[in-house]
Amino acid sequence: MKLYEFFTKGLIKENIIFGMVLGLCPTLATTTSAKNGINMGIAMVIVMVGSNFFISLIRHMVPSKVRIPVYIVIIAAFTTIIELLMKAYTPDIYAQLGIYIPLIVANCVPLVSAESSAAKYPPLPSILSGAGTGVGVILAFAVLGGVRELLGNGTLYEIRVLPQNLKTFMIFVMPPGAFICLGFLVAGFAKVRDRIYPKKAA
């Protein structure tokens, strides 16, 4: 695998949200608007890049039986650091997303990234892989958040797109709307991905 592929595979080919349908808790909870989704995605990129780097550094020192607890501790430490930094420097974003940030620890996206790349490869490819997976997350969150914001609130990235007096579908901002949107987007995504990366005969 070439070095750049560590980054690009996470974007579409192995997009962790739309392709693997992992990490659904933050996906459904934080994508009430494009802005929230993107901010959450950025927090996840930072966590994954940081934790992948350290996990990759110590990958030969960790006995395989305790690797999961070790990864979780490292991911949790990074997540909490991001939370504290957000609280101090971007209080407005923290006010919107605060309760979801700790959930980064409990969802499987950083763990999958750690297990599939950081545990096997040297730091540089691991960082690239974490960043690629993370940018894939941002893309997915931005699309899902954008669709929900547009249908549910008539705005896109807080800019009004639909006429003010047009009745929008409140349900799309609420949890059931997240499921409905996600279903259609996953189906659409699969179609696009198979166009770009035709499946080899199994």
């Binding site: 960790v62 006995p63 395989s64 305790v66 545990a119 096997k120």
Partner: peptide
């Protein structure tokens, strides 16, 4: 999996790294 290089799962190793 390339865990072949990983340290053996002895109690000391596991507790130590944790």
């Amino acid at each position: 999996m390339s865990h072949k290089k990983a340290r053996p799962d002895t109690l000391l190793n596991m507790a130590g790294i944790l």
